[in-house]
Design a protein around this nucleic acid. Sequence first.
DNA 1: TGCCAGGCCGGGT
DNA 2: ACCCGGCATGGC
Length: 227
Amino acid sequence: MTLRQFFAKMLVELGPQDWWPARTRLEIILGAILVQNTAWQNAALALKQLRQKGLLNLARLRGASRAEMESCVRPAGFFRQKTRTIQKFLTWLERNCHGSLKTMFSLKTELARHQLLAIKGLGPETVDAILLYAGHRPVFVADNYTRRILARHEMVKSGADYAEVQQFLHQHLPADPDIYNEYHALLVEVGKKYCKRTDPLCDKCPLQEFLGQNQLMEVSSSMMNVG
DNA sequence: TGCCAGGCCGGGT
DNA sequence: ACCCGGCATGGC
């Protein structure tokens, strides 16, 4: 009951988020890398630069020099690392998927996850964002906001790591990518507004009423219709 | 103006 | 198994 109410409350407060804010699968993948520990606004600036240079397609991106890519990526911060990560991903795609995203997304979820995690610069959150938002796979993105909010509401133990929180959500939610999509997006928005790293408690958080309610029941797809 | 953002890696204990 | 510093830019 509580997890469903929790979600319904967020949906009412903030409305549907309509994520991921990108058009193509490639753009989602690049965005997932560019937004690592960075405000989305800055990642968006980098994507804009890439678009202006015509690099938001695989063929052109492969042909871009490191310097050219770095100059586009710069506003997203960590620009050397992120450029390296993008290039390592492109190399992996060439060697393992004939350079085709279609081939990549035909891999079974667990295999794709395993392979992507082996690329330096791609960690669990980035990979899961790619699988969920570009691949429409039922994989919950248990990012920092998700972990912090669930911990503060005592649904998971404080300090629970990525895998623990993800497993918890997979256990208590139907394996539906549309639900994972909306739920994660809402958690990020709630986090930005009410649950930043330095906020000691979420006293203004509209979800405060759920604090301490950790008895959870399964939810159904009908929750998507709330709000 | 300082502090933070939709992480990840490598090295140390 | 943890803990830490480094990586970097733009906005509030």
